[in-house]
Each structure stands twice: as structure tokens, then as C-alpha cells.
Design a protein around this nucleic acid. Structure first.
Length: 161
DNA sequence: GCCAACGTTGGC
DNA sequence: GCCAACGTTGGC
């Protein structure tokens, strides 16, 4: 069994945020709509059931990590790419060889107190973190175990949902 | 295969 | 809402 790995996923609370995830059946939702090849590769090849996810709110007043989630389904073809009614419809994607992938995530625990981007920038332990690097706009990105521990380690999280 | 134009992301 | 930093597209 491979070691559990960690990721950070960005969401825009105006579109779909933590509260929306909690409102889903089983607190589980398909993480779809990712249209970036680098992120796609992670979703398709790297992210596995059981991995930990930092749930991050972007494009909001105080961009922050708000909770943790767990991957509950490995990468599979993103259904929205084949639906012409979908915003994320991609007519160039061949169903025989899908271009875009999604995973399912389940909300696990809220942060005891949300951790803002500003606060993270001020933490020397998080230096070099993907999220904090200039120009890093990946909506799905890796988190090192040490970084996970600092952000979501003992005492940082609220009760299991 | 270069690169200008265009679109998107996301902090501020 | 602005705009810098990227990524993608498409003409050549």
C-alpha cells in the first residue's frame, strides 16, 4: 500500500465552497471542471483513494484553507466534458480517449480556525509551499507531509464530520 | 515550431 | 474590478 499523499484543491466559495460540499449527499462530490493539463495529470495518475485534501477557498476576501477532505474515488473521465449543456463542455475531447479527469472527494474535518493565505505566508515552515510560490495557479497541487502536519496536524482540526 | 493574441486565474 | 502572470490557440 502506497503511502498516503496530500493535495490542496482550490474552490471558489461563490461557485462551490466548503458549505456546498457539506450539503452534498455523504458530504461527497465529484471534483470536476479542471481544465489544466498539469492538474489533469495529477487527477488521472497521482491522486488516489485515501489521500488527504486541503480544501482551499480562493477568489474571496480572505483566501484560506477551511477544512480537510479525503479522496474517495480515483481519477475517472470528467463527465462534464461530454455534455454540451455544461460550462466545461469540451467538444474536442474524444470519449474513447478522454482529455479531462475528475476524482470524488468527501469532506472530513473543518479547520478549528481557518488559515488564511496571509497567515501561511508568514509561517517559515511553509516556505516553498506550492500555493505560496509566485505565479502558481494550479487548482490542484501537491502538499508535502510536513506542510500538511503544520496546517492540519494535531490540534488544528475540528471534530470529524 | 515560433510567437502574438487571446483567455483565464486569482491575489489584491 | 484591476491586472500581472501564465496557459492555450492558431496563423504563418
Amino acid at each position: 500500500m502506497a503511502r498516503r499523499r496530500y493535495w490542496l484543491m482550490k474552490s471558489e466559495p461563490d461557485v462551490f465552497g466548503w458549505d456546498d460540499l457539506l450539503a452534498c449527499p455523504d458530504r461527497t462530490e465529484c471534483w470536476d471542471g479542471v481544465r489544466n493539463y498539469q492538474a489533469r495529470n495529477l487527477l488521472r495518475d497521482e491522486i488516489r483513494v485515501g489521500d488527504g485534501v486541503l480544501f482551499y477557498h480562493s477568489r474571496t476576501k480572505e483566501p484560506s484553507v477551511v477544512g480537510t477532505a479525503r479522496v474517495v474515488r480515483n481519477g475517472y473521465p470528467d463527465p462534464t466534458q461530454f455534455d454540451p449543456k455544461e460550462k466545461y463542455y469540451d467538444p474536442k475531447s474524444d470519449p474513447e480517449n478522454p482529455r479531462w479527469f475528475a476524482v470524488d472527494v468527501q469532506a472530513e474535518r473543518p479547520m478549528k480556525t481557518t488559515l488564511s493565505l496571509k497567515e501561511m505566508r508568514a509561517m517559515p515552515e511553509l516556505e516553498g509551499m506550492c500555493l505560496l510560490r509566485k505565479g502558481m495557479r494550479l487548482s490542484v497541487q501537491p502538499v508535502e507531509p510536513e506542510q500538511w502536519k503544520v496546517i492540519a496536524g494535531p490540534g488544528k482540526l475540528g471534530p470529524k464530520l
